[in-house]
């Protein structure tokens, strides 16, 4: 499954990056969203994929005896998801504010801070 997952991750990265490189500001945000999905899945895969053994200690036991999914990457991803959400929410509102203030959704028109000498 890791092989398939690696292709899924690669595909997500490729499309995320491609979208980010577009000039439309909305696509930029969509790209960022895909990128964060891709990163999360990447960490998930790095913890090795395990089917049907969630990292829960069953009632009555004091420890897990069988092999379970690695809980650490899951915790990391949870953190990353939430952080990603915060950043994305900011980015989404930012592009809206950009469009309202600058009157364009074309990133190439947002160049005044870099105007060539």
């Amino acid at each position: 499954m890791e092989v398939v997952m690696s292709f899924v991750i690669g595909g997500l990265y490729a499309s995320g990056l491609y979208l980010m490189m577009r000039r439309n500001i909305l696509k930029l945000v969509l790209g960022i969203a895909l990128l964060s999905h891709a990163a999360n899945l990447l960490i998930f895969t790095m913890g090795r994929l395990t089917r049907g053994h969630p990292p829960l200690i069953p009632p009555g036991e004091v420890r897990v005896l069988e092999s379970i999914a690695d809980p650490l990457p899951e915790a990391l991803i949870l953190t990353a998801i939430v952080i990603g959400f915060g950043v994305q929410a900011f980015a989404i509102v930012l592009i809206r504010r950009c469009f309202e203030t600058l009157g364009t959704d074309d990133l190439d028109e947002m160049r005044s801070t870099d105007r060539a000498p």
Binding site: I25, L35, L42, I43, A80, F90, L94, R97, C98, M110
Partner: peptide, 20 residues
């Protein structure tokens, strides 16, 4: 706003790379 868009985007790239 123009500066922020670039700053945010490229720094997010870096974060994604770091996370990976």
């Amino acid at each position: 706003l123009e500066g922020t868009v670039k700053y945010v985007t490229l720094n997010l790239m870096s974060s994604a790379l770091f996370l990976a």
